[in-house]
Amino acid sequence: MATSSPTRKSLWHRLSTFFYLRPGLTLAAMLAAPLLWLGVVYVGSLFALLLQSFFRLDDFTGQVVRRFTLYTYSQLFTAANIDIMIRTSGMAAAVTLACALVAFPVAYYMARHAEGRAKAALYLAVLLPLWSSYLVRVYAWKLILAKEGIVSWFISQLRLDWALDRILQLPVIGGPSLSVSMLGMWLVFVYVWLPYMILPIQAALERVPQSLIDASGDLGARPAETFRKVILPLAFPGVVAGSIFTFSLTLGDFIIPGTIGNSSYFLGQAVLSHQGTAGNVPMAAALTAVPMVIMAVYLIIAKKLGAFEAL
């Protein structure tokens, strides 16, 4: 034991010196495994996705034909698919708008009124739902929105059943009950993505310098004017940053439309059903190009609006 220890130590020392003198090699040794994983497995998979979208499914044999074709992409623009794209983007826009409206007051209170322990508690109250089980949070609404559930009970206690029925009879947003309507789905989407909107707005509001607000007041602006002309423009990039999350997450989701929605498909559900029961991986791959293109355009606009500095 005592005799082997110095040689072992010197081996480690020599190894250490070897790497110390070759920083390039050290870096390569450290990054080899992560790059193999993310660069080859993950980016490789993304290329596989791209490749698959240029194959097609043989309608007779049900097998994927591995030859280059644009056929699958040409099949994207059927009336049914365009319907799905419009429905999904419309929902994403409505969810984003509602999230911004609900999140702004919370973010404003957190950034400009709360202090010390209260602020830390508020921060945690927003962060906890962000990280906690998404699936369980969706499930909660299945209970809440059910025809026999708590929302219906409250509404009937208030003698407002007629109003709910009237709303549920509306085309597009209505349905047999809240738990199988677009209106219900919209509520659940707003609920699950709300923390993603609050945090960037809060961060943007924190960065508004007090001196600017004081200056605005000194120059004779009333608080409402200061809010509209100083605070709101400076907080806007935060809203755009948050909207990237709410919009993108809504575009790709298939859990909420599958749980709360009616039978009309959303993009994620279409992708899921093509790769699953239909075995049409090329079509599923081509369909994912849609949210990616939409998000690419969205990100370019967001960058112009200064959202990346607010992230």
């Binding site: 993950y42 998979s45 698959q52 790709g252 992708v271 790769q275 991986v281 791959a285 994912t288 949210p291």
Partner: peptide
């Protein structure tokens, strides 16, 4: 869904 379908592909 993109990560999912990419790995699936």
């Amino acid at each position: 869904i993109v990560t999912g379908i990419a790995l699936r592909s």
